[in-house]
């Protein structure tokens, strides 16, 4: 059991690097990433778990970064858009997003990409309707989603075709 208190020291890996910080218990993961680590690729759109702009990976799975406390990530592995860009894991998806203009203001894009990556990682064919359903927790005001669905569909088909 940790001590019952307001500030806690946490150690976690973020994009493969180990970091240790003392955080306020109330600080959520995205404020931690943005303010303490200057990883500004993760965004805050609503801070109540609806818009998906804050999507990050926690121990390999996408979560709402605004609904996870930084202190909860103690000992965990966090990945952000900066990290998956560095590893090249979704380079094909990113390229297709750019080519297809599957983003405009770009504020939703990091969350959208990480959400899409989870679908791509399933390695299964996905219909446009299934892609749309999978994206339904990520709000985009600019694109109307059509181009995003195109980009994910194209990438998924390409990946499956080369298997």
């Amino acid at each position: 059991m940790t001590e019952l208190k307001e500030r806690h020291e946490i150690t976690l890996t973020v994009n493969g690097e180990t970091v240790t910080r003392t955080v306020e218990a109330r600080q959520h993961l995205v404020d931690f990433l943005r303010n303490e680590l200057q990883l500004t690729g993760s965004h805050l759109g609503c801070e109540h778990g609806v818009c998906g702009a804050c999507t990050v990976r926690l121990d390999g799975e996408i979560v709402r970064g605004c609904l996870t406390l930084a202190v909860q990530a103690d000992g965990a592995a966090v990945e952000t858009i900066e990290g998956v860009t560095e590893t090249g894991e979704i380079a094909d998806l990113q390229e297709t997003f750019v080519e297809r203009n599957a983003l405009q203001c770009g504020f939703c894009t990091p969350g959208m990409l990480l959400t899409a990556a989870e679908l791509l990682n399933a390695g299964k064919p996905a219909t446009r309707a299934e892609i749309r359903t999978h994206l339904s927790g990520n709000y985009c005001r600019c694109t109307g989603y059509h181009a995003i669905v195109d980009a994910i569909e194209t990438t998924n088909n390409k990946r499956l075709g080369t298997k």
Binding site: M1, L4, R26, E47
Partner: peptide
């Protein structure tokens, strides 16, 4: 909006959780 201040404890077992509760 940011959460208000609170104390946080992470329990390691059911017994600890029930103690705190």
């Amino acid at each position: 909006m940011k959460a208000p201040r609170f104390l946080y404890v992470r329990v390691a077992s059911l017994v600890e959780a029930l103690e705190v509760l």
